[in-house]
């Protein structure tokens, strides 16, 4: 009896100790995960803020060795690129998402759902290669359009899946109310269901746009880059991300410094984007 009790209490304490160790380990892991986040933000802000001035937002880049200058062309370029990407990607994503939620309860629907998931895992550089063969080769030169097409392909999976999920969240009773009023199904879907789900869909669009704004790889050989002012979508165009890449890998100290500033501006731009979107999509009524 004694022996059994002893053995029992030993396993009991062992279990207790293992329990505490494992709990502590998982908590420590959560903290460790946060460290790089803090470090990256700390460096981007502290290094980037040194060269953050009005010139950065109003002037063009200067040639090597000449100090100062800004990246106004890259800021505008990034906006144009995500604009083109959105103009193509948003409608395709919303329509496909609507199809999946409204009519996609069949084999083809499952296939498309599966393929959008797979598409979301395709490396962005591969999408860049496709945009190169699709747009750059026929046009025979790099262009903002090619970059926009690449970004659109990257946005489609995010927007499609969020649209589908958000439409599914709209209570069936609204749909029934619409149909019972003698409103055709398509109008019920567009004017009632989509409108009700709009806030969630907008979040998906925002996510797609802000990811696109941070993409570099698919732009390297589509939009290429441009040291001058250009808003022509059929010509190469500058972007913040490509500048960060070029300036950080260049052997010039002042370029390196500006790369940090560009990174800070990019993060600010993405945050602003999310803020503006939140204001636009804020519903008229509290719910």
């Amino acid at each position: 009896m004694e022996v059994i009790n002893k053995a029992k209490s030993f396993t009991y304490y062992r279990r207790k100790v293992v329990n505490i160790i494992m709990l502590f380990f998982s908590f420590a892991a959560a903290i460790i995960t946060i460290i790089p986040l803090i470090l990256i933000f700390y460096y981007t802000i502290s290094q980037g803020i040194a060269h953050l001035n009005v010139d950065f937002f109003t002037k063009l880049p200067t040639p090597v060795g000449e100090p100062g200058g800004g990246m106004v062309n890259a800021i505008v370029g990034t906006l144009i690129l995500i604009g083109i990407g959105g103009a193509i990607g948003i409608p395709v994503g919303i329509m496909t998402g609507t199809y999946l939620s409204e009519f996609g309860k069949n084999k083809f629907g499952s296939l498309v759902r599966f393929l959008t998931d797979v598409l979301s895992g395709v490396p962005s550089i591969v999408v860049g290669v496709v945009a190169y063969t699709l747009v750059v080769i026929p046009m025979k030169h790099f262009s903002a359009l090619a970059g926009g097409v690449a970004l659109a392909i990257l946005m489609i999976p995010t927007i499609t899946r969020t649209t589908e999920e958000m439409i599914k969240l709209v209570p069936h009773s609204y749909r029934e109310a619409g149909l019972a009023l003698g409103i055709p199904k398509w109008k019920t879907t567009v004017m009632i269901v989509l409108k009700t789900a709009w806030k969630g869909i907008a979040t998906g669009i925002l996510l797609g746009l802000s990811r696109a704004a941070g993409e570099t790889a698919p732009l390297l050989f589509t939009a290429l880059g441009n040291r001058f002012w250009s808003t022509n979508i059929f010509q190469p165009i500058a972007s913040l991300t490509v500048y960060i890449y070029e300036y950080s890998t260049a052997p010039f100290k002042d370029w390196n410094d500006q790369a940090w500033t560009a990174a800070l501006v990019l993060i600010i731009l993405i945050s602003l984007l999310s803020l503006i979107f939140r204001i636009i999509t804020r519903s008229k009524y509290k719910t």
Partner: peptide, 13 residues
């Protein structure tokens, strides 16, 4: 033929 449902369902938007 109009219909009124069990749970009130005015369009929230």
């Amino acid at each position: 033929i109009g219909m009124v449902f069990q749970k009130p369902n005015p369009f929230p938007t």
